[in-house]
């Protein structure tokens, strides 16, 4: 996918695939520059009755009325919005009778990996290999049929190799003619791969409303209590050791092993702050990402994921959102909402 979307609408992106078609129905009003800060509650029924927001251009406070409120602000902002929406009916924040909103925050684990040199490729002329599909992927293999002593769950490897338009050898040491020759000779002779693992969901890994700090609109921001645990550290150790073993078995000269974990939050796939489940005491949303507490409230983003697994989450988020919308449409037709 191209950053910023595909100009000729050949590839999927939200405007092309979803927003323009929705506008074509005539039933969509898109209100940009609107920062929502509270889901409003009907004091009689306890149900959601709309959203309070600030127009970010005029700074005016406004309200939108709604039969159903669907939140899709992404994991962190959705949790923030729910937690900010306190009312006598929902003193912990809307949809939060379980005290699980903001908790079980999880994401992915990156950092450990290996770099190798394929000696046979040093000094080779450029071919047309840049035209190949790029990169390779080793799917998860830990804790499937085996049982690792050190950690639960697993990780995959993502890697790349081959010549590209910009040489991958520019960090050869030194400068001058020797440097220039080495960049030329070593271009495309490297191969590297790194682990992409699961951070376990744990109740104590949580986001909450910061009592002191507010954003530009005067809305309280999130505070993070989030740390990798022993499972993540053991998994990271295994990533580095296993990556090295694989390269050595393939006859690749290992020239570098990264062992360090990239810091918490680096891998950007934030998930799990309003987890899905069948028990309203230990989960926030049902299987349709509908609030257990407030039937006309849905959260359709990564918030509902009960764990991060070791894959990129976007397709799962989209598939679940689609299912939620089907359910919502059914329920509206049946008059249940």
């Amino acid at each position: 996918m191209l950053p910023g979307g595909c100009d000729i609408h050949a590839a999927f992106d939200s405007p092309t695939g979803l927003i323009y078609p929705a506008m074509d129905t005539g039933n969509l009003t898109l209100r940009t520059n609107s920062t929502a800060h509270e889901i409003l509650v009907d004091p009689k029924t306890g149900r959601a009755r709309g959203v309070a927001f600030v127009d970010s251009v005029t700074h005016k406070s406004l309200e939108a009325k709604a039969k159903v409120v669907v939140v899709g602000a992404s994991t962190l902002e959705s949790a923030r919005l729910l937690l900010l929406s306190k009312s006598p009916q929902h003193p912990n924040g809307i949809g939060n009778s379980s005290d699980h909103v903001g908790h079980n925050f999880c994401e992915h684990l990156m950092g450990p990996g290996v770099t190798g040199l394929v000696k046979e490729l040093v000094g080779k002329e450029h071919g047309i290999e840049d035209g190949r599909p790029g990169g390779f992927y080793v799917p998860r293999f830990r804790n499937l049929s085996d049982k690792q002593p050190g950690f639960l769950r697993g990780y995959g490897f993502e890697g790349n190799s081959g010549k590209s338009i910009f040489p991958d050898s520019t960090d050869r040491p030194g400068f001058g003619k020797q440097y220039k020759k080495e960049v030329r000779d070593y271009a495309g002779a490297f191969i590297n791969m790194g682990g992409f693992g699961e951070v376990l969901p744990r109740y104590e890994n949580a986001v909450s409303i910061d009592p002191d700090v507010k954003d530009a609109w005067g809305i309280p921001v999130l505070k993070f209590d989030y740390k990798f645990g022993d499972n993540e550290k053991k998994m990271a150790e295994d990533m580095a050791v296993t990556a090295k073993e694989m390269f050595e078995a393939a006859g690749i000269e290992v020239i570098g092993v990264d062992k360090e974990l990239l810091t918490e939050g680096w891998s950007i796939h934030e998930l799990g702050t309003s987890r899905m489940g069948s028990d309203p005491k230990t989960s926030v949303l049902n299987q349709f990402q509908q609030s257990h507490d407030v039937k006309n409230l849905f959260v359709v983003d990564g918030s509902s994921h009960v764990n991060a697994s070791c894959q990129n989450p976007t397709w799962t988020i989209m598939a679940l959102a689609w299912r939620s919308c089907d359910h919502l449409a059914d329920e509206l037709k049946k008059g249940n909402l």
Binding site: T115, D171, P173, F175, V257
Partner: peptide, 14 residues
């Protein structure tokens, strides 16, 4: 100037 350059192998991925 170059004498401080980090030549430690293993830092290519970062």
């Amino acid at each position: 100037m170059a004498s401080t350059e980090d030549e430690t192998p293993g830092s290519r991925r970062r």
